[in-house]
Amino acid sequence: MSYELIGIAVLWIFLYGYLIVASIDFGAGFFAFYAKITKKDHIVSQLISRYLSPVWEITNVFFVFFFVGVVGFFPDTAYYYGSALLVPASFAIVLLAIRGSFYAFENYGSKQSTVYLFLYGATGLLIPASLSVALTLSEGGFIVEENGAVRLQYLELFTSPLSWSIVALALVSVLFISATFLTFYANRANDQPALNLVRNYALFWSTPTIIAALTAFIFLSQHNERHFNNMMDLWWMLGLSVGFFMVAMWLLYSERNYGLAFVSVMLQFFFAFFAYGIGHYPYILDPYITIQEGATNPAMGIALVVAFLGGLVLLIPSLILVFRLFLFDADYVKGKK
């Protein structure tokens, strides 16, 4: 396997990791706010903050890892995406900055306030919406290079049904993933009232997730036929994705095995996300950057892969330690520690 394929595979796995952990985080923000305005905050806020407090920074690093890695393995992305995305990415940075710092201020600093919860909830939806734009752009047709200058065609972007359907998919997916995770976490904490509430959220957001996914898929077929056909060739991955969605729904309905339900949701998104990614091959930005031509030189590529393996040796045991302390330690989850 060539280093550029290893590179894109690793990055895609990390982006998937970010998709899951960030969805939990973003969705939790929205639910915390929603619970506050529907006067149910006493039921869930404790649960949400117990999980999020130790991990919010880790979530952020997944994202940093992804974009630093992309620019490392594929320096051309810095030129095209960097030039085109100055404005939207700057807004995303501002939203991330406000969310991250105000979360810390509130959590470690002072008492709860509704303004803060509103910021936390609103950014939880705006950030995935703005980040999902990068996926739309990669389909081609929105970033153009003329006379040596790269620019983003805002009008095309904002009037594209594909772009809005991807935004919609991002939003409902965030809420669905997050609600399923919180159901699992509430169950571990033996917190029955919270469990009932977040389980309802999970059931509520399941159907929109599938509808949004289908809609986005249809608009993709109109916008980028090549990508759509490639994905159809991976029909078995899409089938597995739907299959795991059904498993998750069944488990949530029959009120058991919430851990497995969350794993099923993770697998549902895993297969969908990888079918999308593999179908995108070989383009990183259609038609300007391909994985082969956009890759860095072999010396750097191999150095990055080696550094990555070395990094994993450090990170995996550390992550296991975190999960054992805060996710799988029943006493901690129940609030006894």
Binding site: N297, M300, A307
Partner: peptide, 14 residues
């Protein structure tokens, strides 16, 4: 520069 100096940037993230 990404072609030459991406390695420490990447390791910094780790």
């Amino acid at each position: 520069a990404g072609n030459v100096i991406a390695l420490p940037l990447f390791m910094e993230v780790f």
